[in-house]
Structure formats: structure tokens, C-alpha cells
């Protein structure tokens, strides 16, 4: 008991710490000295023009991209080349992709059960219960035995959210989760994300949905050319951006 409390430092208040992050593709620097801290429970929206490095940043956070410089610390674990660290970080970090990336050969419920069983070591029964519970939460439990190809885009994305939640992550990353959806399906996915935010999940979302940003974001981060150019609370940012680049970007997405 005593040993345990002595050996385990109090969890740091920031769940994500990114310091001087550099990521290159060949000679091209996709991320250039990016610094970001995410507090527990905080909701961050990242926006910026296409190619500004938004995806690269959140993909570095769970080491789908390997960074070339700087430090990334997730919940006290620094991401280095150590596979054990990488996998334990990935268990705590849920990710939702623009293109859903459900496993097409597994049914909806199996998609949600795979990682909890194989990685977390849950029994099939427990994994099934958890999966059904979370599918119910995203209101898609009646489709649990269907296959991804039998669902609409919006339904698939909600399954992808449930699948990530089944690992009981401490933070969720979203990379433009609604950009591949038909307009009528955007709402159902955003509603799910809003509910998640209201339950206190820590979230980092790349999205251009300003309504969502205004409703849930504690902070909006604007990226351009591989750097964070501006950040602030959503009201101020959308109403009165300070930088020219943010102004011209916002004028483009508002039309």
C-alpha cells in the first residue's frame, strides 16, 4: 500500500502535454514547434485551412505519426519509441477518423468488442455488455449485429465513437468526424459528441463546425502552416479573430 502510493506520482493536471513538436515529411515540416496543453475535462477545437497540420498534430498525439522533435506526454507517459508505452498510451486515447475506419469484416458489436477483449483482457461477456451499453448511448444498439457496410455514414461514425469509448479512454481525439458525411447526417454525430462533452470527456476535435465549437469548446486553436497561430475562447475567436490569417480563414468558411 505504502509503496504504491509512494511509487505513483499524483496525476499531472494536464492530460496532454505537447512541447516544441516538430514533424517532417521528407524535408517538408508539417508541424513546426507546436506547443499544446490539454487539461483534464477540457474540450478543444482545432481549425485551420487544409494542409495546416491539424490531422498530423492529433495523429502524433497517439503516435500514428512518429514525431521528429519535441516531446509528447500523455497522462504522464512520454511517447518515445518504446512500443509498450505507445500501446498503453493508445489505450487511453480514443480516436475517431474522418473516414470512420470500421472493420468491415466484423459486425458492429464485434467492432466494439475486439480491442477490449484482446487489449484490455475483458471476457467476451463483459465486452459484449459494455459494447451494447455504449451502442445504446450512441443510439445504434438495434443495429448491433449488422455489418458496417449495411449502415449509413452517420451510423457508422456513431459506431466508431462507441468503439473508441469501449476502451474507456481518458481523452478522445476527433479528426474531422463529420466532413465525410452527407449534411443530414452531420447533426446526429454532432449530437453524440455534444453529449460526450457534457459528460465531462476530455476532447480534442478537428472540426469546422462552428456551432459545435461554440457550444462545447473551452478553447479554439487555429493552425496555419504547421503552427498554432491563434487560440482563444470560441466566442472571441469567431467574433473577433486577432490575426489576419484567422480572419481570412473564417471569412472563407462562413461565406
Amino acid at each position: 500500500m505504502l509503496q504504491e502510493s509512494a511509487g505513483r506520482p499524483a496525476p499531472p493536471s494536464s492530460i496532454v502535454v505537447v512541447e516544441h513538436l516538430v514533424k517532417r515529411f521528407g524535408r517538408f515540416a508539417a508541424l513546426n514547434d507546436v506547443n499544446l496543453e490539454v487539461a483534464r475535462g477540457e474540450k478543444i477545437v482545432i481549425c485551420g485551412p487544409s494542409g495546416s497540420g491539424k490531422s498530423t498534430l492529433i495523429r502524433c498525439i497517439n503516435h500514428i505519426e512518429k514525431h521528429d522533435g519535441g516531446r509528447i506526454v500523455i497522462d504522464g507517459i512520454e511517447l518515445t519509441d518504446r512500443m509498450a508505452d505507445i500501446n498503453s498510451v493508445r489505450c487511453e486515447v480514443g480516436m475517431v477518423f474522418q473516414s470512420f475506419n470500421l472493420f468491415p469484416h466484423l459486425s458492429v458489436v464485434e467492432n466494439c468488442m475486439l480491442a477490449p477483449i484482446k487489449v484490455r483482457g475483458l471476457s467476451r461477456l463483459d465486452a459484449h455488455d459494455r459494447a451494447i451499453g455504449l451502442l445504446r448511448k450512441v443510439r445504434i444498439h438495434d443495429q448491433a449485429n449488422k455489418y458496417p457496410a449495411q449502415l449509413s455514414g452517420g451510423q457508422q461514425q456513431r459506431v466508431a465513437i462507441a468503439r473508441a469509448l469501449c476502451m474507456q479512454p481518458k481523452i478522445m481525439l476527433f479528426d474531422e468526424p463529420t466532413s465525410a458525411l452527407d449534411p443530414e447526417m452531420v447533426k446526429e454525430v454532432l449530437e453524440t459528441m455534444v453529449e460526450l462533452a457534457q459528460e465531462g470527456m476530455t476532447m480534442v476535435c478537428v472540426t469546422h463546425e462552428m456551432g459545435f465549437a461554440r457550444e462545447v469548446a473551452d478553447r479554439v486553436i487555429f493552425m496555419d502552416g504547421g503552427s498554432i497561430v491563434e487560440e482563444g475562447d470560441p466566442d472571441t475567436f469567431f467574433r473577433a479573430p486577432r490575426t489576419e490569417r484567422a480572419k481570412s480563414f473564417l471569412s472563407q468558411i462562413i461565406h
Binding site: 500501446n87 493508445r90 477518423f97 472493420f103 468491415p104 475486439l114 480491442a115 487489449v119 476502451m167
Partner: peptide, 24 residues
Amino acid sequence: GQAEAANALGLGGYLTYRYVIVPQ
């Protein structure tokens, strides 16, 4: 995206091949 999604769920190299990549 298939391997990426598997990795993002914490499935390592072996599990990703075994349950996601090879069956497909």
C-alpha cells in the same frame, strides 16, 4: 485507415495483422 484504426485502439502489430489485416 484499417491498420491505423486498429493501432489507435491499442492493438499491437501482431493483433492488428491477426484480427484486422489478414482476415480482410
